[in-house]
Amino acid sequence: MRKHLLEAGDLDRADATLVLDTAAQIEAALAGREVKKLPTLRGRTVVNLFFEDSTRTRISFELAAKRLSADVINFSAKGSSVSKGESLKDTALTLEAMGSDAIVVRHPASGAPHRLAQWVKGSVVNAGDGTHEHPTQALLDAYTIRQRLGRLDGVRVVLVGDVLHSRVARSNVWLLHTLGAEVTVVAPPTLLPVGVGSWPVTVGYDLDAALPKADVVMMLRVQAERMNASFFPSAREYSRRYGLDARRMAALPDDAIVMHPGPMNRGMEIAAEVADSVRSTIVDQVGNGVTVRMAVLYLLLGGSPS
């Protein structure tokens, strides 16, 4: 395993599989236990360095670190020295001087975790950087698919929505491809990046055409502000063309599942009855997030052979 987890794009199949297998063992080891805590990372300090609000991701990492007995410091950039102009580099060096072993970073700028990794001695975990990647989300998604369908090789995954601005989409495209899944992205052309043609995916604009061949449908969050920038004419038109409602869900093969990284816009990209259906893995994804992040922290921080 490497020292940092910066992007799903640089995980090879062996690395990615090791994370998923480790998560499965951790899940089995903790199953049915009253004491959900392991002493593995006792004495290590994990800093959650969040430059964007993301309560769910921060809590997931916090719980993962605490279940491995690491000390956790939550550092929110809001109201801190960062908002007074302290640079990312100074912040990172300060935290490291205080003894952090790993920095879990969420940042609005793509590549910020890569920069951190060049400045600090400890491990860096990317918890979402700009419109680049969110590798632990992709790992937990892959874990959830494998858990539900028993495999990843050859699984047909349809990713729907704002691929252009989605770090979840990027991480999933690379990771799922690495793990042998067949990925299709479906979106209005305005929400696909120029250059998507070089990705290992099939590109489509028609959701109805993609659904009957899908084992997994992954819906991406669509931000309302995209509408104001003319990425699409209206929320209603978006929902009509790219939203997953009960009628569209019925077109899926029997054992297909529906995923969403959250937070959802119910009624926009996903209808409430779809989100709450038995096909939906949305709650599983949240629980698996903690397990997969435990596996990542263990593998990065457990130690390296001297």
């Binding site: 794009g9 793509s110 590549g111 950087d129 700009g130 419109t131 680049h132 990647e133 770090r167 990027r170 990046p193 120029v194 250059g195 998507v196 043609g197 070089s198 990705w199």
Partner: peptide, 18 residues
């Protein structure tokens, strides 16, 4: 815009300068 818009900007998630 942050870098040339193309295959690399698509992957790096940096705003494209067409």
């Amino acid at each position: 815009a942050q870098m040339n818009e193309g295959e690399r900007s698509a992957r790096l998630g940096l705003g494209g300068w067409p």
